[in-house]
Design a protein around this nucleic acid. Structure first.
Length: 937
RNA sequence: GCCGGGAUGGUGGAAUAGGUAGACACGCAAGACUUAAAAUCUUGUGGGGGAAACCCCGUACGGGUUCGAUUCCCGUUCCUGGUACCA
């Protein structure tokens, strides 16, 4: 009877670490109990942990994607154990080009592919055991979501940027001011060509004229703009979607083209976007990238009169202090003014030059910086400071898109101007004290010479005087110029949010809010129409009906960044039908406390989100002004390819170490059939039919593969799928291993060479709670000093690592702790309970299982993080390294209560030390108690 | 070109306030268990010399500061990310 019962027990409870069973069990438990449901709770501090919005691609997740999610999951779970109310959501940026390209090829509606991809992504994410509140999932392509993307667009349309208030204000308030005062006194961000008018003139304008003027102020507006046109994709692209003259997605050529486009007046926020960077805790390089992208320059506009003409040329310069050194003006080839200034005697050469320069592609111009080219127009301008006549040139080093498209050239103090002047034999006139031996020099802050009334001054003073002169004469003013351009907001594509806009008399009007969402219509094909309209031109009845009649709706859709610029607010209140999110909720959750994602979004998403947040702040919709308080940029996981070496002309494969003895060539082999660089021969034969009868030349009985770090891609057979790792080792091992691989921010190749160690760790952890028969067994006996010390070392380390986001070192410290406890044969509840909590953020499934075996009925996620107590780590003795001249020569175990004199005495008495001292007394003795002894002889 | 980040054993990496370089893990080697293999466990493992004690060298390279430098400073090389005629 006795024997029988034991046997039954062994069979029923005997438990090796069975990750499959455990992980499924707890994932279902979390789902059923709604463990990670987050609700507003004013009595608890909040923590908002966010991952960058994924685009659900058809390829599914590979092992690199979850890296950041695992890190944020660990932080989220840790914060919850620390008593925080954690918001940790996940959702999908589900509008995008790949689904549409696929739709064009197959005719399948992008919504269907997108849905399939999301299902796959969600399944993969759930297998990893993330503490996401899945009830908050959002999708940008869901009408209930994009209703509010459209709503935000409408608010932008109804707003302008007021420079006195330094915020966005309603366009209605602007109209009121126009009606009473005209626009002369209005300081607002508007188009360059905005006319000045009085109240009377305003009132006399027609409805059409009024709307045209208002468009020059609206924060989102329709205007003729030079855009990046990608013919292959049939759409315009934003600057951050273009890399080296080619589209980021697909690598198609991109050209500059003038088109009527919707834009967002992000430039109005340039300065606040710059200022705000001071207040966020981001990695410095990302901030620097944004600063460069915004590109603030402080300088002045200067107007040059064209000689014998009423034409004027406005230039922007950051160095008015060098204005007496100007020896020519240069205009961009695209400039209409340049063409009009060409005189008869220069016509042939200048026009030919403009023709060539204009038609050179952006890419050509960029890659060919060294070649200096230009042409004299034949016209002269007058330098307003000294009345000198200077030549006006056309030069392709001047960009039409920056400043005024014209520069005042100071060859002595600007390298490009210098090279140009040298090349064409133009005058070089020095106006700052210094040596011209090595060509031009910027001489910033230098002493000004040969410069009329600003001579004998330093830069700062000279600039102030020169600007005062310009303003007094009405021929210029101090100005701040930004490199950043307004963001194009339309794409001539199907799979995006429709703009809630219709056209009347050729002018845009908003649809009424009650008609939102303006749902994406069905079309027969996802291609442009025959007459070049965007795909929405194919939709039937794509019109808007008002009391006045039926009007055509806008046919372009919003760009990919629209939906992702505000999704972090929607997570706070994902199902709200009356607002994009309830104010009480946005007030409570506030800014994202930790944002983890790649640095590739530095100048796109991260800038646009900040812009929209500031706008929503201005209109009183949210109280925060910066969306992401702290950000960590995880490094990309690269692929690590494996190779086999085929002997030429045979079906023989030679192992890596022997390949040089044969005439062989390398061939990619699927990394999933290679373990620790050793090829699984059976799986290799089964991999492809032509390899079934492959033969091998082995070294030490093994086939060793070569390896190389490359991008993770299907064609290189180096894609590792998280599901495969989970199938083999479990989600907890995957989570631990991704963290163990190295610092989160670092770029690193994925290889599974070390994964066994992490898996072994989990088994050792499991064994602490089980006896050798595999039965759960913990003791209630009090813990020993050593056991407590091992535990508290780990607690301390984890606390520190969490503060520094050093996840890899925490995994090591868990291993050390488990190794120590195993050596101590510890199975005390007093140790093992806190131990389970400690590892639970990293390995939540096994931790839940152990926690429940320990007799707890509630999830371990509701436990409290163990309190660190320094007293367990206090040592009474220390093994001093004793150094002679900085080299470690002896070790000395001494009590920490010894005084410096006593330590010195003990050190000098040591045998090994005596040998090195050779009987002499040390010249100098350095003793740092608890650290080191160093003797100088 | 300009602005960042980096370089540590065979490999991933550690050293968080200048104080024992190489924690932890992989791999490798030897041993135990096994008919055998796998798994597991034990021991060793930066390089060179030595039977050993121990000695010399060693954190990309060259200098410097310091009693003491992977850590701070100056210079060089290589890798890597961003950006590109921005007036």
């Amino acid at each position: 009877m006795q024997a029988f019962s034991i046997k039954t027990k062994n069979i029923s409870i005997m438990a090796d670490y069975n990750f499959r069973e455990i992980e499924q069990k707890w994932q279902s438990y979390w789902k059923e109990k709604g463990t990670f449901k987050a609700e507003v709770d004013p009595n608890r501090p909040k923590f908002y942990s966010l991952d960058m919005f994924p685009y659900p691609s058809g390829a599914g997740l590979h092992v690199g994607h979850p890296l950041g999610y695992i890190a944020s999951d660990i932080v989220s779970r840790f914060k919850a154990l620390k008593g925080f109310n954690v918001l940790h959501p996940m959702g999908y940026d589900s509008f995008g080009l790949p689904a549409e390209q696929y739709a064009i090829q197959t005719g399948q509606h992008p919504a269907i592919t997108t849905e399939q991809n999301i299902t796959r992504y969600t399944e993969q994410l759930k297998n990893i055991g993330f503490a996401f509140d899945w009830d908050r999932e959002v999708r940008t392509s869901d009408p209930a979501y994009y209703k509010w993307t459209q709503w935000i667009f409408m608010q932008l349309f109804k707003s302008y940027y007021d420079l006195d208030a330094n915020k966005a204000l309603s366009i209605d308030s602007l109209i009121e001011r126009f009606e009473t005062l005209g626009n002369k006194s209005v300081k607002a961000v508007s188009d360059e060509d905005t006319p000045v008018f009085t109240a009377e003139e305003w009132k006399a304008f027609s409805e059409k004229e009024k709307q045209e003027i208002l468009l020059k102020y609206r924060l989102t507006f329709l205007a003729e703009t030079t855009v990046n046109w990608c013919a292959a994709l049939g759409t315009v692209l934003s600057n951050d979607e273009v890399k080296d003259g080619f589209s980021e997605r697909g690598g198609h050529p991109v050209e500059r083209k003038k088109m009527m486009q919707w834009s967002m007046r992000i430039t109005a926020y340039a300065d606040r976007l710059l200022q705000g960077l001071e207040r966020v805790d981001w990695a410095e390089p990302i901030k620097e990238m944004q600063r460069n992208w915004i590109g603030k320059s402080i300088g002045a506009d200067v107007v040059f009169q064209v000689k014998d003409s009423d034409k004027k040329i406005k230039v922007f310069t950051t160095r008015v202090d060098t204005i007496y050194g100007v020896t020519y003006l240069a205009l961009a080839p695209e400039s209409d003014l340049a063409a009009s200034l060409i005189t008869e005697d220069q016509r042939a050469t200048a026009e030919a030059y403009i023709e060539v320069a204009k038609n050179r592609s952006e890419r050509e111009r960029m890659s060919d910086v060294k070649t200096i080219s230009g042409a004299f127009t034949g016209s002269y301008a007058i330098n307003p400071f000294n009345g000198e006549e200077i030549q006006i040139w056309v030069a392709d080093y001047v960009l039409a898109g920056y400043g005024t498209g014209a520069v005042m050239a100071v060859p002595a103090h600007d390298e490009r101007d210098y090279n140009f002047a040298k090349h064409f034999g133009l005058e070089i006139r020095q106006v700052i004290e210094g040596s011209m031996e090595n060509g031009s020099f910027p001489g910033k802050g230098g002493f000004i010479i040969n410069s009329g009334f600003i001579s004998n001054m330093y830069m700062k003073e000279a600039m102030a005087k020169a600007i005062a002169f310009l303003e007094e004469k009405g021929i210029g003013k101090g100005k701040i110029q930004y490199r950043m351009r307004d963001a194009i907001f339309t794409r001539q594509r199907y799979w995006g949010e429709p703009l809630p806009v219709y056209f009347k008399d050729g002018l845009p009007y908003l649809v009424e809010e009650k008609d939102l969402p303006l749902v994406l219509p069905e079309v027969d094909k996802y291609l442009p129409t025959e007459d070049g309209e965007p795909p929405l031109g194919r939709a039937k009845d794509w019109t808007y009906k008002t009391a006045e009649g039926e009007f055509p709706l806008e046919m372009s859709t919003m760009p990919g960044w629209a939906g992702s610029s505000w999704y972090f607010f929607r997570y706070m209140d994902p199902n709200n039908d009356t607002a994009f999110a309830d104010k009480i909720k946005t007030d409570y959750w506030g800014a994202v406390d930790l944002y983890i994602g790649g640095s590739e979004h530095a100048t796109g998403h991260l800038l646009y989100s900040r812009f929209w947040t500031k706008f929503l702040h201005d209109i009183g919709a949210v109280h925060i002004d910066e969306p992401f308080q702290k950000m960590i940029n995880q490094g990309m996981i690269q692929g690590r390819s494996n190779f086999v070496y085929r002997v030429k002309g045979t079906n023989q494969f030679v192992s890596h170490g022997l390949k040089d003895q044969y005439d062989s060539f390398a061939m990619h082999v699927d990394v999933n059939i290679v373990h620790n660089d050793q090829l699984n021969l059976d799986k290799f034969k089964a991999w492809r039919p032509d390899l079934a009868d492959a033969e091998f030349i082995l070294e030490d009985g093994k086939y060793i593969c070569g390896s190389e770090v490359e991008k993770m891609s299907k064609s290189k057979y180096n894609v590792v799928n998280p599901d495969d790792i989970i199938e083999r080792y479990g989600a907890d091992t995957l989570r631990l291993y991704e963290m163990f691989l190295g610092p989160l921010e670092q770029f690193k190749p994925w290889n599974t060479n070390g994964i066994d160690g992490v898996y072994k760790f989990l088994r050792k952890l499991w064994n602490l709670y089980h006896n050798s028969a595999g039965d759960f067994q913990v003791s209630n006996a009090p813990a020993t000093k050593e056991e407590l010390k091992a535990l508290h070392k780990a607690i301390k380390k984890m606390e520190e690592d969490m503060a520094n986001h050093s996840f890899n070192t925490s995994v090591s410290s868990f291993m050390i702790c488990v190794n120590e406890l195993t050596a101590l044969k510890c199975n005390k509840r007093e140790i093992l309970e806190p131990m389970a909590i400690l590892v639970s953020p990293y390995a939540p499934h096994i931790a839940e299982e152990l926690w429940s075996l320990l007799g707890h009925s509630e999830s371990i996620t509701k436990a409290t993080f163990p309190e660190f107590d320094e007293k367990h780590l206090v040592e009474s003795a220390f093994e001093y390294p004793v150094m002679i001249n900085g080299k470690m020569r002896a070790k000395l175990n001494l009590s920490l209560s010894l005084t410096v004199q006593e330590i010195e005495k003990a050190a000098l008495a040591d045998e090994a030390v005596q040998k090195w001292l050779e009987g002499k007394a040390p010249k100098k003795v350095i003793i740092v108690p608890g650290k080191i002894v160093n003797l100088v002889v």
